[in-house]
Amino acid sequence: MADRRHIATYCGIASPIVSLGAIVLATIVAPTETFTWQGRALSDMGRYGAPTFPLFNGGLIAGGLLGLPFGWRLWSASRNTLERLGTLLLALTVVGMIGVGVFFLEHTAVYLETSLHGLAALTVFGVAPFAAWVYGSGAALAGDARLAVASFWLGNVHPVAWLGWVLSIGGVDTNMWFAVPEFVAAVALGGWTLLLAVTLRHRPDGELAAPNR
């Protein structure tokens, strides 16, 4: 059982590394006809027929699949109802990440008549900050101040990134710099997941017991 917990914890470390690594690598190798920071969304790199199609979508799917066992691990280590609810929201976010890769842009040209890409992306970017806030509230109740504060602030990165983008371009336009707030939000989500996994990894008993005061 202990080995399963350790493996699941390391999955939480690997998940953001794989997904963010694939995104960064895709931005580097993507031709300008497919992606630019100024005029594209990140998902354009996973559009059907794009050269970065397998890298981008494969990275999201692999990272999401690695995140699922970590969700189980975090649930087993949860100390109260709010932490468990935050864990469920994180799991939903991970499912959304997998969905972004499975329901890539223009997947209707390959299968399904209804596009589910937007719903999957909204699940990731819309649920992620609430997962951090709710889990952070649970950490605060458990007396884990450092984890609570870090969770809250990493959750705050999401709305700040989107609000900053809207104010900077004077409105909502997915054709202008849309990839920037997406990437900032993705880094915040990945950073929070990594924080949780590393915190679990470094606790002597492998559990999220409140630190001694």
Rank of each mutant, 00 (worst) to 15 (best):
V157K: 12
T9P: 15
G21R: 05
W133Y: 11
V100E: 00
L42G: 08
G59H: 03
W37S: 05
A197N: 05
F104N: 05
I13S: 13
C11S: 12
F70W: 03
Y111D: 01
V94S: 02
L88S: 10
D205Q: 12
G86P: 13
P69K: 05
S43C: 01
W75N: 07
F53W: 11
M97Y: 01
L105T: 09
V127P: 01
H6R: 15
V29A: 13
A22S: 15
I98R: 01
L167S: 12
D3Q: 10
P16S: 10
T32M: 13
A185E: 08
Q38Y: 09
G99N: 03
V94L: 14
V172G: 04
F125C: 08
D3E: 10
T108C: 12
Y135C: 03
T114W: 02
R40S: 15
E106C: 11
R73E: 12
R79V: 06
V29I: 15
G136V: 03
I13M: 14
R4M: 11
S43E: 04
P69V: 02
G58A: 07
L194K: 07
P159A: 08
A179L: 02
G138L: 10
H117P: 02
Q38E: 13
F130P: 01
D144I: 04
Y10W: 14
W75I: 05
T52P: 11
P69G: 04
V187N: 12
A145C: 09
W177F: 13
L112D: 07
V134P: 03
R146D: 08
L25H: 08
R40W: 08
P129T: 02
A139R: 07
W37G: 05
L88G: 13
V102N: 00
G12I: 00
W192R: 09
T87S: 03
V124G: 02
G101P: 08
A150R: 14
L208F: 05
W177G: 06
G118N: 06
T114F: 09
A140D: 04
P211H: 02
V95N: 01
A150F: 04
A30E: 07
D3A: 13
E182A: 10
G99W: 01
T123R: 02
P211Y: 06
A41R: 15
E106F: 11
G71K: 11
W133N: 03
T52V: 06
S115N: 03
L112F: 13
T27R: 06
T81E: 10
F103Q: 00
G96Q: 03
F183C: 08
F103S: 01
V100I: 14
F53M: 13
A132W: 06
F130L: 15
L68M: 12
L119V: 05
R79E: 11
V134D: 04
A210L: 08
G99R: 01
S15R: 10
A62E: 08
M97F: 04
R203D: 09
D144R: 15
